[in-house]
């Protein structure tokens, strides 16, 4: 019960304090909106909007979650208030779950901003919403833990932004979001299959356009493995570096 109270209040505080912080608005909300508009304006026809929707959604989640993490973790590290959480009588795993749940929810919300736009511009009939939501959740979890991994590896918020761009921008091009993986040079293609976002985007492509190229079950498994792995490495690093 004590742990539950702590968990809920850490989550609540982060949501209240950080959802509207400038870096989150610019990277998490404004940036994906700009992307959405740019693509929608360029694509013009209704069919294309549905075609690029999975990619834009995946991108919104990726940017939203990673920028959120660099704020909730890195800012608090720098002001040393994070030490309070480490000194609290809750397990490190629960603490890190509390610190990441806010980002996961933020990512899920971000995913549906482009959907709102699309709703006005095109017909969204025939979409498997259940599978879409499940895919969105899985992408949000994986990319949050990727953001956690990054936040734990750096000491400054701007470093976290820079470091995450190192991951984020290649993913835009390599994960089949806008350029089909089949169109990439064969030498680069293995890279695509290393990136977790490839699998996440593919799930949503199945759900929205029945256009995925990977079996959804396999994609879920890969994302699950990535999530567990990244979370484990991150808590390991915290124990090693922050409880010194």
């Amino acid at each position: 019960m004590n742990a539950l109270i702590a968990f809920w209040n850490i989550l609540l505080k982060d949501m209240k304090t950080y959802y509207l912080k400038p870096p989150n608005i610019s990277w998490g909300i404004i940036f994906p909106i700009s992307w959405t508009l740019m693509f929608f304006v360029r694509s013009g026809s209704a069919i294309d909007i549905r075609g690029i929707l999975p990619g834009v959604m995946a991108l919104s989640i990726l940017f939203g979650t990673t920028s959120m993490l660099s704020v909730t973790i890195t800012f608090e590290r720098r002001s040393r208030s994070f030490e309070r959480l480490l000194l609290a009588p809750i397990s490190l795993n629960l603490l890190m779950l509390a610190k990441t749940t806010g980002a996961i929810l933020f990512g899920i919300i971000n995913a549906f901003i482009p959907v709102l736009y699309a709703l006005f511009l095109t017909d969204l009939a025939g979409i498997n919403w259940g599978a879409t939501l499940l895919g969105v959740i899985f992408i949000a979890v994986t990319s949050t833990f990727l953001g956690l991994f990054i936040a734990v590896s750096v000491s400054e918020a701007f470093e976290a932004q820079t470091f995450s761009n190192f991951f984020r921008f290649p993913m835009m091009f390599l994960c089949g979001l806008f350029i089909p993986i089949g169109n990439l040079p064969a030498a680069i293609r293995p890279l695509s299959y290393i990136m977790p976002l490839t699998y996440g985007a593919d799930i949503i492509k199945h759900a929205i356009n029945r256009a995925g190229i990977i079996t959804p079950g396999l994609s879920f498994l890969v994302l699950l493995a990535y999530s567990i792995g990244l979370f484990w490495i991150s808590t390991f690093n915290i124990k090693r570096k922050w409880i010194y």
Partner: peptide, 10 residues
């Protein structure tokens, strides 16, 4: 209030 919640205070 937040700090108290970390220790499970109702």
């Amino acid at each position: 209030v937040f700090c108290a919640s970390l220790y499970g205070v109702r």
